[in-house]
Design a protein around this nucleic acid. Structure first.
Lengths: 122, 122
DNA sequence: CCGGATCCTCCTGGATACTG
DNA sequence: CAGTATCCAGGAGGATCCGG
């Protein structure tokens, strides 16, 4: 009650920042998208993402699993077989990414125009 | 036509990644939100964001300006006075952040539940 | 008051090699 | 096949000082 400062975004929406942290990662977005096509094995993900290192693929999938966005299923066979798929929660998050996609499709040309204006003058 | 690989997210939505790069930054989100309340001076932004360094505030505002999201107006007076405000483009982007806010409000409890489950077992 | 320039530190993430 | 372990370089970002 003492401070007159306007509430910040973090005060009013404490989870927005954490949600951005969830998805604001190159590999997370890639993995979520590939998995939106259906269940994939580790090797498939690695091939289809293309330029991801093993270290980062493993770390990304572990994080997604921990956050309840991806399901990890291990089959006790040799050689090992592990399948990854989106959870229902992960699917809803993909819907939100779709929302961002729409904005970018509609407005990113304006961003690029602003950039070239800025770079030309500055 | 030769490769059978599914298209990646980057192929089908070339701007999604760049759009995420636009907003997936702690200070960007903070600045956009503060500015959604109206025009602010440099010092106001610094105080209201709270724990941002001068270096990062300046860099953040310059990026936002370059991307056409924020308008920077300099008044030729002493001592200097500079005002920042959202452009119409920046306002539309704030709508998208609202979309993320809604998701986080509805679903972040599930994320935290998944985390404590994972941490307890693992 | 609004920054630019510099230094310095920490963390991220790639490359590589190894294992059940 | 599906990871783990280790090493290492580059960049992000805070602290600080200076300048118009």
């Amino acid at each position: 009650m003492q401070r007159q400062q306007p509430t910040t975004l973090f005060d009013s929406h404490p989870y927005l920042r954490q949600t951005l942290d969830l998805v604001a990662d190159k590999w997370v977005v890639a993995a979520l998208y590939i998995l939106s096509h259906g269940t994939k094995r580790y090797g498939e993900l690695q091939r289809e993402i293309g330029d991801i290192s093993q270290r980062m693929l493993t770390r990304t999938l572990r994080d997604l699993e921990r956050n309840g966005l991806v399901d990890r299923k291990v089959y006790p066979v040799v050689p090992p077989m592990v399948e990854y798929s989106l959870t229902p929660l992960g699917q809803t998050l993909n819907q939100v990414l779709k929302c961002l996609c729409d904005w970018s499709t509609a407005n990113f040309a304006a961003v690029e125009a602003a950039r070239s204006r800025y770079d030309k003058i500055g």
